[in-house]
Amino acid sequence: MRMVIWALLGAVVGFVVMYMALSVQMDFNFYAIAFQVNVILTALTLVLLLYIGVSILQMRKKSEAKVSDDEEDERDIWLYKKFSDTNMLVMATIVIGIVASAISLITNQPPWLELISIVAVTIAFILSLGVSSLVNKFYPDRNLPSVSEKNYAKKLLAASDEGERHVMLEGLYRSFNMLNGALILALFLLVVYSIGTGVSQLFSIFVIAVILLGANAKYFLLIRKKS
């Protein structure tokens, strides 16, 4: 029943948005604010990079410090949460950095801004490797793969115990469902934007469609194989 209500609500909202898009001519010139947006996003990337750098140092220091038995659990919980937060920030920094670089390259911003944006996103990629490799430092007695190893993700999953896999499964499944919904919404928005502005977003629509088809095919074929 809840699904039906959501589907009907979605249909109504979709109809209204589509109707508005067809009747109202969208007039949005991103180029007019591209420089400002680029500077803000690049500055945000740099601030996040700084924060990630400090977090890495904090985690290294904490993992090397000698603690009593009573404090051992607290330290591990702190490291676990800090590691998760830092990983999330690294991913956010990479995404924001790519968007900033894309804006500077596509809208022909000053060379210094293009350079800073690209260098920032490159540092973010390097830091992502640094953060991932920290896990070996936290748990030296565990046989965890190195980030540079081939099939790192597969080996990490294999080296994880059942509790960790349970947490990963829950997180990944929720994230997969959210991503599916978000990408379908993105397709819808791109169609509306294309119609509203007359600027074709077909390339992005094709790319998102291929990603959706590929990711879902991989998931469902894997499930099917385990029958």
Partner: peptide
């Protein structure tokens, strides 16, 4: 025993002990 020590003895992660 703390969670970390129990985890080492049971050959699992501390997170798994915490979840259980």
């Amino acid at each position: 025993l703390n969670q970390t020590e129990l985890a080492k003895r049971a050959k699992v992660s501390r997170q798994t002990i915490s979840l259980i």
